[in-house]
Design a protein around this nucleic acid. Sequence first.
DNA 1: ATCCAAAATATCGTATACATTCTTAGATGT
DNA 2: ACATCTAAGAATGTATACGATATTTTGGAT
Lengths: 234, 234
Amino acid sequence: MISNAERVLEGLRRSIISGTLSPGARLNESTLSKEYGVSRVPVREAIRALETEGLVESKLYSGCRVSELPAEDAEELFAIREVLERSTARKAARRRVALDSVTEADISADSASVRWESWTAQREAIDGILREGDEALAEDRLELLPQLNISFHNAIAELSGSLSLVALLRTISSSIERLYVADVHQRARSSWPEHHLIIRAIDEGDAELAGTSMAKHIRRSKRSYLRGSSSAGA
Amino acid sequence: MISNAERVLEGLRRSIISGTLSPGARLNESTLSKEYGVSRVPVREAIRALETEGLVESKLYSGCRVSELPAEDAEELFAIREVLERSTARKAARRRVALDSVTEADISADSASVRWESWTAQREAIDGILREGDEALAEDRLELLPQLNISFHNAIAELSGSLSLVALLRTISSSIERLYVADVHQRARSSWPEHHLIIRAIDEGDAELAGTSMAKHIRRSKRSYLRGSSSAGA
DNA sequence: ATCCAAAATATCGTATACATTCTTAGATGT
DNA sequence: ACATCTAAGAATGTATACGATATTTTGGAT
């Protein structure tokens, strides 16, 4: 169960990332309330979250606008994301090892078993994402991949168990996804299979391999984006 | 002029960073409303923002708790911050150069002059921060420096003109500041003067020097924290 | 015709009131 | 005594109503 505020948040985030809401577009609270069939309160909460993510700017008594595309920041954003996601992958792998030893030691301990439950649930969720992505790829339904891609990387971050890293990834992903939403479809075909390498390294508890696999993955993504935008002139 | 929501947000953020609100502490909306003398709506907005920053966790119909300290993530967070702030410093210096050439070319252009106004205003704000910090240092009022430190780094990010980088810095600063709020006082004495080097490089438009100065600054900060926490056992 | 000023409007910020859900204390039965 | 179930209370989620501010429009003066 999720709240109306979250529903509105996710809807608006997708609209901004996909470009349905262009940079500079104004967000009218009353209009959005009617569109989503909710009152203004959850709309305002969603806008506050978007503001913290850097997707919109708001001025007191003057409403709220979609922020400009961070086109000039592509290099920097990818560099930061590489460091960040190397960390999440490494931590996820390390946590896998740690849970293993704990479980062997004392299964009875309450907190330990709870952690294990949480791990397996999140781990299974990733399998679901990978399966969906594989199917989408096989059936050539590439339009499904961008969202699945975000879900995968976010799931790895959650697997790391670090709320701070999850928050950072959400913020930076929002910005980066806006940049290459256009050519992400074609890129997805070649990049999606790399996800399997990353999750395998995590399963094996190989923190270094998990980290370097993720970093390579991000660097390829960056090169693909920079190549596409330069040829497209954007 | 700032809204009540922002006032509450800043207040709660400071309380969490300073440890007045300990990890696991529950945030009761009604109580906070009375404390800050506002209604529940702005309180809820502030909580949403804190959630996006990763400082609190909230569950539907079950309220909201201060998140755990990201002690294990110190290494990762500093690594990310180093890359991030190297970027903000470099971009700030580059923007300085760009504005210079624009101003020489055509002062009359409206957008250009507006940008210049914005730059000088932000730039002067930094001088104010530096002056306050210098005074606090001279008068040995070290308790003022943590907040000034955050303000300085945030101001540099705003000088870079990139909303995405500002958002990222805010998120990561919140996490990092929580970690070494304790020994930040003694560290501030040695680290504060380094700020002058960074802003000088930006003024001279030397992007590389600005970037490396900032990166060094962050690395020193990291070493100081890691040394302090290991000796203190926290 | 252009520019300035003041009123009207639209939009945001806030407060109050209601609905839904979780939590907890107490009762009850075994 | 312990566990379980139930019901009252508290807290969150949401909707509506009101007040404050910015923006726009309109009228008049230069």
